[in-house]
């Protein structure tokens, strides 16, 4: 059952707003809501990925200007995630829908626990870097970002473990039609010790690539409905544009709380429905 067009526009807007603020992408919220309307996850997945792609594009310009996206970290993580996203999308038609939903719920719950279990800021500001442009240091997985008057240097750690989590995120993303940001953002911020705001913005960038890979597979399988897809994209562009503005000015600790709470809601809905 497909909801009315106006409802898809509204759902796309609300979920992408929340997804952009929390750096987890709109689809992590949209797909569970579509399941609640009675839609099957096989039909909801392409709409989810369209919402992810729209969210990523809507936030891109602002996050690029703010120097929040670390493209080297993003593409390194994405190489692992997209490989497994393709495998997941190809397998999605042969895995039972309840198992897909449970995998999505478990992933969201893991992301929530990891995100909410930490207190305080891991990366303190440093006046040495005050006059540096925010952004990445060439040839490395390090950089600085500005928040207010402070400059915060950072460098990615535990990269192999972060890539392993990204691969799991990619597989779930390809199967369930979500961007995987609910695992990629905690993987970058909690495993690789990248500041949460950089992790959220970088994750939003990489989700666009994951979505592109998955959408091509769904297009090849003839699973994209024109009107429903356009409705979700239309709402998602509006919601994510406003959400990315809110996210850029949000303190890191509050951004983590928003991410964690949203993930708990997602896990509760998805796991509850699959039981």
């Amino acid at each position: 059952m497909t909801p009315a067009v106006w409802l898809l526009v509204l759902l796309g807007a609300l979920t992408s707003f929340g997804g952009a603020v929390g750096g987890i992408g709109g689809a992590t919220l949209l797909v569970p809501v579509l399941l609640l309307t009675g839609m099957d996850i096989i039909d909801a997945a392409p709409l989810g990925l369209l919402s992810v792609a729209a969210t990523s594009l809507a936030a891109a310009g602002r996050q690029l200007d703010a120097g929040l996206v670390h493209h080297r970290i993003g593409l390194t993580v994405e190489l692992a995630a997209s490989s497994f996203a393709i495998a997941g999308a190809l397998l999605s038609t042969s895995v039972p829908a309840p198992w897909l939903a449970r995998a999505l719920g478990l992933g969201a719950l893991t992301g929530a626990v990891v995100t909410l279990s930490r207190r305080g800021n891991r990366n303190p500001s440093n006046q040495t870097f005050r006059d540096d442009s925010p952004g990445e240091w060439p040839g490395t997985l390090g950089g600085t970002y500005h928040f207010g008057d402070a400059s915060v240097p950072y460098h990615a750690q535990h990269v192999p473990l972060g890539l392993a989590v990204a691969a799991v995120a990619g597989a779930i993303s390809g199967m369930a039609g979500v961007g995987g940001g609910f695992l990629k953002t905690p993987a970058m911020s909690e495993v690789m010790h990248v500041p949460v705001k950089v992790a959220a913005a970088t994750s939003t960038f990489t989700m666009g690539i994951t979505a592109a890979a998955g959408l091509l597979v769904f297009a090849g399988q003839g699973r994209i409905d024109a009107t429903s897809g356009a409705a979700v994209v239309l709402g998602a562009m509006g919601g994510a544009t406003i959400g990315s503005r809110v996210q850029t000015g949000l303190p890191a600790t509050r951004a983590r709380t928003v991410t964690g709470v949203l993930l708990i809601l997602v896990a509760a809905v998805v796991i509850g429905r699959s039981l």
Binding site: L50, A53, A54, S56, L57, A60, L75, F205, G208, I209, A211, A212, L215, L216, A219, I224, A226, T227, G229, A230, V233
Partner: peptide
């Protein structure tokens, strides 16, 4: 047709960025 054009842009732009 318009939906296909939309998907082409949504897929093409992140690839162009990379």
């Amino acid at each position: 047709v318009l939906a296909i054009a939309m998907v082409v842009v949504l897929v093409g732009v992140p690839m162009m960025r990379v």
